[in-house]
Design a protein around this nucleic acid. Sequence first.
DNA 1: TACAAATCATCAGCTCTACTGATTGACAGG
DNA 2: CCTGTCAATCAGTAGAGCTGATGATTTGTA
Lengths: 151, 151
Amino acid sequence: MGGNGREPAPTARLLAESTGWLLNDAAREVTLRIEEALKGDDLRWRDYGVLVVLEAAGPLSQQEIGRRLAVDRSTMVHIIDVLEQRGLVLRSRDRTDRRAYSIELTDPGRALLVEVLHPLTAEVHSSVTGKLTDEDRAHLNRILAQLAGGT
Amino acid sequence: MGGNGREPAPTARLLAESTGWLLNDAAREVTLRIEEALKGDDLRWRDYGVLVVLEAAGPLSQQEIGRRLAVDRSTMVHIIDVLEQRGLVLRSRDRTDRRAYSIELTDPGRALLVEVLHPLTAEVHSSVTGKLTDEDRAHLNRILAQLAGGT
DNA sequence: TACAAATCATCAGCTCTACTGATTGACAGG
DNA sequence: CCTGTCAATCAGTAGAGCTGATGATTTGTA
């Protein structure tokens, strides 16, 4: 049988009806699939997140990226190390604040996003949410945004 | 301002519209709140999950619990160690299979669930999903179950 | 019966991530 | 200037996942 322990093991009804538990199950499922898809390019989902944020917002400091993605500052050091070594981002001193770096997307980084990463993740998303109607999907996103939005 | 970095940091639109990203954000939010609520009883959400599964299914082996909660077998060893030390579960050899333990809820464990843990987590849930209509909540649970259900 | 394969719990070792605290260099206000 | 704050870094710690090995036991099969 399937080798990965992904059998639909029965769960207690109380948990199966718990929004929190379902949320975690669904998130884990999606995360696994996206990480799997990105493995070919030797990237993690977090790395993709960094690139997307930079694409949308332009140059940012490491801490600012971390804040937006809820990644710890000390973890960001390593993430940017790797992305810089691969030439996907450029690390230079911020001209107006020499304490901070200015992390910037490079042309190869932008190209990788457009040509490979965006299509890849979009494919996973449509595979995962494919069974849902457009209406359901919109509804879901709206509700999730509300939950994540906090108080 | 707020001390915990829980500011509504702006995220790239592409991520804000990504079901997967929203799913992870919402799951993290709920997890944080539940862990916070359980901290008073010095329990983790996983521990609560173990107790709930045992309450619903009766005695199970460690591996079977782990399968149902998607927790690694080697992590289960430690979780049961702690729950056993606190007298919430009983670890005895399975009579029909002496390789396996039979993990069983004790009376104090059951009492803790009913009197403290269920009310606590229910409160967090209603606090988190309080802004949703009953209809939305039911819709959400249904969709999440579908997503987590896999293939 | 005898032997091989699979299973349960455990342990040791590795990795990854989060978090803390300290340090260095740089900014900003009084 | 002096003090406080902030960015990045590093070291150290803790927790969780995963792997592979082991011992005891069960199960399937020749």
